[in-house]
Design a protein around this nucleic acid. Structure first.
Lengths: 149, 149
DNA sequence: ATATTTGCAAACCCTTTGCAGACCG
DNA sequence: CGGTCTGCAAAGGGTTTGCAAATAT
């Protein structure tokens, strides 16, 4: 009888690697997150999780999401609108940013090495080491350019 | 009898220019804001306003701050921590960003034309026009001795 | 004069928490 | 088994709002 090595989602595995107790709920939430490529808020995660296993409470989603964030598994984002949104954390590199469509609210991810480098340089020159970058640009589709704010 | 042209703070004047009714409370809040060069949250603004005129309620500060934001007089910022913080809006140019000290939480403003340009270019290339940039970097002061951790 | 604004307190929204029972390792 | 995790509902912190009285233009 062979041992099952990894029947779980990538995030569930990560969970285990981090030494976190892998409960049914966490497994479900991890699965839902692994399965998401957008930036759901807690209520949305709750909806998706309940669809998989109805025995999950929203309090647990809040607790899990916080736990995952503290363990570097998730990243919390704020795109305005009062509620926190989450996405699977990037590896140490591959950092990415967000462009938010001013009209539709749609979030578009992008990467840019030059931007990475420039930010790092700027922060260095100010005598600091870069810890985190929180950057989202709001843009409007192909119209006049405004260089405000 | 000559008309008083401008006995008020710069922001109170802006208020008037925008056609907003200039009440006592708004005048006070505008004064407090003109007098601030940091990024106070609503409670802090309330404290400062009450120090000038005790007949102000926090509800009015919330309402005024929102009004000012909607009229481009103030800018709301989010540095984490749940509460919104405010600062006087930049003119169309002179845009600036924020570096947050990871340890002290201190907010340090900076400008960088190269960064302005790069962001604009990136957004253009994605087929959008830049509307707003929300950027704050968290950094840790470089230790000159060693960087243990 | 009269439409707006204010203060107060209650309402709201998102998030956290105390507790008793359920569960993982 | 023992400590951790969960569900529930109540509490919490920031922000908004309904209403009658006060106020600006």
């Amino acid at each position: 009888m062979k041992e099952q090595t990894s029947p779980d989602s990538p995030l569930a595995d990560l969970c285990r690697q981090r030494g976190l107790k892998l409960t049914g709920q966490r497994r479900t939430i991890a699965f839902v997150l692994s399965d998401s490529d957008d930036h759901p808020d807690v209520e949305e995660l709750y909806r998706r999780a309940v669809a998989v296993d109805s025995r999950i409470s929203i309090a647990t989603v809040y607790r899990t999401v916080r736990l995952f964030e503290e363990n570097g598994i998730l990243q919390r984002r704020d795109f305005g609108g009062g509620r926190a949104r989450y996405e699977v954390a990037d590896g140490d590199h591959g950092d990415h940013y967000h462009l938010i469509d001013a009209d539709s609210g749609k979030v578009i991810e992008f990467e840019n090495a030059e931007l990475d480098a420039l930010l790092d340089t700027i922060v260095q020159q100010m005598g600091y080491g870069l810890v985190t970058t929180r950057l989202s640009v709001v843009g409007r589709k192909k119209a006049k350019t405004r260089s405000g704010n």
